[in-house]
Design a protein around this nucleic acid. Structure first.
Length: 466
RNA sequence: GGCCCGUUCGUCUAUCGGUUAGGACACCAGGUUUUCAACCUGGGAAGAGGGGUUCGACUCCCCUACGGGCUGCCA
């Protein structure tokens, strides 16, 4: 009988949602959602010094923006501390753990001495096999009685069969002398209690998996399926750091990348499904598997991210895109759309979305919608509006006033005007763009005219011709 | 220092012993065009190095180099 699949994402609330953490969460989510399984969220807040509620909130916001919804309530690891202590004591009772009275000072001294000698032996507690009768009446930590010989084998779905010699692992502390659980114990207990079947996490935990597996064995619990994924590196191949900027998932939102494109890019980073590059989230959940995860760390490539985002923007539903655009405006601290801007955006979206890779870019292309008369013009636009062009624009307005305002009608008028003036259409389009958008780079003149309408078009042309 | 993991075009990757080593992004050239974007065509571009195993290695094994991780009463 195979138990139903359960995955989880377990971040420490010590900062925002890291881009690597976001991808780890995404992989877990994809794996679960593709199998009708559960995706749980647990906050590893046992380190009271470094954990903050603000960080937890930021992580939740990041996940939500990425569209990764979790099942059930968010679990606080700290809340389970009594259960963790209980398990530590069960280990004691089973003889798979022991009380260690060595003080932190003694252990530090041992390490310092070892280092001075140039050796790096693991600390071996003198209390491992001590007679309980000799136990002092003093605070103690509970240490796992780890096997000293043999090896622990991690059957990893990504890294393959990884063998760790037990002699290289020490008797880790599972319960501190102040009765608080350590991470090693807490993860195992929580994953077991939450029924987690697949642990998909960064490969910085690969060796930890061996230690954790010892606890599973000590408690006689079923070991989950391991999948340790490589970390993400910066564009320079080095560890991701502040220097690379854009470490937090939310920063990507502020930069204006659409969530769908972000998901696509992050999924593709370190995972492959043949030659599939551009895909929907539905396809991703359907295709995602552990086998497709690569073993080497991947670098962030903003160009590819942008390309994918452009494709997703173009493929998006107009109304949904407008909603996401407004959300972007809000998080990036920009003014909200006025009612008329929103209405124009709605009708202009179809042409706008074909040409933008990010929301700032889309907004830039939508300048003809975002600005109102009088339209301010940049230098190139000013140049395009020379005396001759102004004259042509002037001569155009009577015809436009009588136009039926359909694409065909406008096309007939404009190409006719170009021909009448003995110029190519491109020569006419430049001043039109300048008049309509204040720039010589803009969406199609027909699209702009159709979106802003007859009156506004004529008014802008008259402004420019004046 | 010890242990563990990794290494295919600039980047993300395909390949699961036999391929002219494929695709995508980026780049370069040309085309189309109503500017930008898009689009079309073409191009350059890779198995870290060295040993094995094998009729045959990118693929399996070993060594080296480089990168990363772990080595806490942090997570």
């Amino acid at each position: 009988m195979t138990s139903p699949v359960v995955t989880r994402f377990a971040p420490s609330p010590t900062g925002y949602l890291h881009i690597g953490g976001g991808r780890t969460a995404l992989f877990n989510w994809l794996f679960a959602r593709g199998r009708g399984a559960k995706f749980l969220l647990r906050i590893e807040d046992t380190d009271r010094e470094r954990s903050t509620p603000e960080a937890t909130a930021a992580i939740l916001r990041g996940l939500t923006w990425l569209g990764l919804d979790w099942d059930g309530d968010v679990v606080s690891q700290f809340e389970g501390r009594e259960r963790h202590a209980e398990v530590a004591h069960q280990m004691l009772a089973r003889g798979t753990a022991y009380k260690c009275f060595s003080t932190k000072e003694e252990i530090d001294a041992f390490r310092a001495e070892a280092e001075a000698r140039g050796s790096y032996a693991v600390f071996q507690s003198p209390w491992r096999d001590a007679d309980p009768a000799t136990h002092p009446n003093a605070p103690f930590a509970i240490r796992m009685k780890a096997p000293r010989e043999g090896e622990t084998v991690i059957d990893d779905q990504v890294q393959g069969r990884v063998v760790i010699k037990n002699e290289t692992l020490d008797d880790m502390i599972v319960l501190r002398s102040d009765n608080t659980p350590t991470y090693m114990l807490a993860v195992v207990v929580d994953d077991h209690d939450m029924g987690v079947t697949h642990v998909i996490r960064g490969d910085d935990h690969l060796v930890n998996a061996a230690r954790q597996q010892m606890i599973y064995d000590a408690m006689g619990w079923a070991v989950p399926t391991w999948a340790h994924i490589p970390l993400i590196h910066g564009p320079d191949g080095k560890k991701l750091s502040k220097r690379h900027g854009a470490l937090g998932v939310e920063e990507y939102q502020v930069m204006g990348y659409p969530a769908a494109g972000m998901r696509n890019y992050l999924t593709r980073l370190g995972w492959a499904h043949g030659d599939a590059e551009f895909f929907t989230t539905e396809q991703a959940t359907e295709w995602f598997d552990l086998k497709g995860i690569g073993r080497a760390p991947a670098r962030l490539d903003f160009k590819k991210l942008e390309n994918l985002c452009g494709q997703h923007i173009a493929a998006s539903d107009d109304a949904a895109l407008l909603h996401e655009l407004e959300a972007f405006l809000a998080v990036s601290g920009q003014p909200t759309l006025t009612d008329s801007q929103r209405a124009l955006m709605q009708s202009g979206m179809a042409s706008l979305k074909e040409r933008a890779k990010t929301f700032p870019e889309l907004l830039d292309k939508a300048r003809y919608i975002m600005s109102s008369r009088p339209i301010s013009r940049d230098e190139a636009a000013e140049k395009a509006l020379d005396a001759v062009s102004r004259g042509i624009l002037q001569s155009l307005t009577p015809q436009l006033r009588n136009a039926s305002w359909t694409k065909d009608d406008l096309e007939a008028i404009l190409t006719g005007a170009a021909a009448a003036n003995g110029i190519g259409f491109g020569k006419l389009a430049a001043p039109l763009r300048a008049a309509l958008a204040g720039r010589t780079v803009s969406p199609s003149v027909y699209d702009m005219m159709l979106v802003i309408g007859q009156d506004e078009t004529i008014a802008r042309l008259e402004d420019a011709a004046a």
